[in-house]
Design a binder for these strands. Structure first.
Lengths: 138, 138
DNA sequence: TAAAACCACTTGCTTTTTACAAGTAGTTGC
DNA sequence: GCAACTACTTGTAAAAAGCAAGTGGTTTTA
């Protein structure tokens, strides 16, 4: 149900597991093709993936781009609106880093990386990286 | 599906809309009774509420407490683990503040409040408030 | 140039989850 | 002692997710 609460507003459009995992793949794992999302560890179904990509595009979190080399391929990229979800994903990562204990695979610090040491600085660095990778050429 | 990713770990246990809205109610709207959660603007169903409260308690995000005055009432309070989700909820609020535009009710800044001006300082203040309200007496 | 493979999806069906309404057992106030 | 209130539970219909197979277009291979 629609409500005027900012938290609910956000949750209504990106507050489901698969949506955020797709954004994670784009943001931290450098994935950009449909097949790459499909192959993620968590095993998203192809119909759900198609549905979420459509929603994400409709809500302007991502945009489609043609691949110059492989003409049948489509590249998915984050928009600024999508990139701005990064601090939120980082907070999930930081929380898990504190509470997940043994549930995490080793070497998963790639995500929170610099942010763990200095939040403001780490976020700034990550923003720069994402903006360079996803926003150039538009 | 279980995976070793910290983002997925978090999303598996608190990454659904109703769960986060209950935590929002506890955190920002000072709600503590079953009936208060039921009455929230978004209209959670009573069976879903019961289910989520059980999950939240099982995962130690909240705990039940007896109400001294009204003996049939149960008070729900956040644990430290639950309180530590605050920065994440704040990030949702900050994102919505930037992108929700006219979708928000006026005066909803109560949530992000001080955090909007100075993130580190605002979070610290909010942590102190929550720890005082939810953790004292245990 | 015909066949095989790969691309981003779509379709159909089953299972799980959610939504809504009604009911219940145990206090509490009058 | 009974009506009202508490935190739930139960039953059922609707919606969403999960799974497997298929599709139409492009690209690579023989």
């Amino acid at each position: 149900m629609r409500s005027g609460c900012p938290l609910n507003y956000g949750l209504e459009i990106f507050g489901d597991k698969w949506t955020l995992l797709i954004i994670r793949d784009l943001m931290f794992f450098n994935k950009k093709y449909y097949n790459e999302f499909l192959q993620s560890e968590e095993g998203i179904s192809t119909n759900i993936l198609a549905d979420r990509l459509q929603l994400l595009e409709k809500n302007k979190f991502i945009r489609k781009e043609k691949d110059g080399e492989h003409k049948q391929k489509i590249i998915y990229r984050l928009t600024q609106k999508g990139i701005d979800l990064m601090p939120l994903l980082m907070e999930i990562g930081l929380w898990s880093d504190k509470y997940a204990g043994s549930h995490l695979h080793p070497g998963r610090d790639i995500i929170i990386g610099d942010v763990k040491e200095n939040k403001a600085k780490g976020l700034k660095k990550m923003f720069a990286k994402l903006e360079k990778e996803h926003l150039t050429g538009c």
